[in-house]
Design a protein around this nucleic acid. Structure first.
Lengths: 143, 143
DNA sequence: TTTTAATCAGACAAAAATATCTGATTTTTA
DNA sequence: TAAAAATCAGATATTTTTGTCTGATTAAAA
């Protein structure tokens, strides 16, 4: 198995993109998100619950309850979600699993991987997710 | 958690680099590799056993037994090890976990991630591991 | 020939990731 | 006010990954 993000993180990213593509302040139930994205309902619910603790999402209880972004999509980057769910350690650890990999004690691919990692970080942090609205709608087929 | 390779794959890569940095045809016991790389002995043993099936490693039983590369390091690339252990699916699947991510049905970061992924693939496949001998020796401290 | 030290095979165990269930609480709506 | 439908919290279950153990076999060396 080779992975970049955990399932939890992938689902979180998808759910956030989904919500960001909705009309502002529209509340989405866990069930709706689950159906549209084919994510187990309780699982996505848990993930969004945890993101409420980070202040990225807010929830409303009771009938007509659900989740919505508590921050405007123009203020959210993909890296924020990744950080909240998976953390950023992987952007600081050796791709080959060696310990103490650093410029002073580099692994055989330290430099090359470092550059790639920086580009990946940049990819996740250069654009805010409001830029992804159209693409998300197309991908998800919510048109 | 964010990961690029599984532990199994990281250990496999380290062990192969270790063996490639030894004198040609020198046999390394699982215990030696375990000690030098701080990998659980039985685990690295299992990994190397499985790599014998791919023809990358060969084993010798009995006292003075152990493992050595069955291919010259100048014929092995990191991607070969990755493929043998983790497989290459991640180089063909969506970083956000969306299904059917393709140029015709792209996710919001399809193009950008595709480029990065290609560079990562290139990093793992452009150089053979004989080029890493010195760096490996330095990193591992077997001088 | 016996002891020693290694792989090998397969079962087993532990930990982490992923997923589900249950029941309490909340809030809208009939 | 009662029913319905949602979050929320916490326990539980399942699956995958990671790691360990045991015993059989092999081969070198005493």
């Amino acid at each position: 198995m080779t992975v970049l993000f955990s399932k939890k993180c992938e689902y979180g990213l998808q759910a956030i993109l989904y919500m960001a593509a909705q009309e502002e302040d529209r509340i989405c139930s866990a069930e709706e998100i689950s159906n549209k994205l084919s994510i187990p309902k309780e699982f996505v619910s848990k993930i969004l619950q945890s993101l409420t603790l980070n202040g990225i999402v807010e929830s409303k209880k009771g009938k007509t309850g659900g989740f919505k972004l508590s921050i405007n999509p123009s203020k959210i980057k993909l890296i924020d979600i990744v950080e909240a769910i998976d953390g950023l350690e992987s952007f600081n650890s050796c791709v080959l699993g060696f310990s103490n990999c650093s410029p002073k004690n580099p692994c055989p691919v330290h430099k090359e991987w470092g550059e790639l990692r920086n580009k990946a970080y940049e990819m996740l942090s250069s654009e805010t997710i409001d830029k992804f609205k159209e693409k998300t709608l197309t991908k998800i087929g919510v048109l």
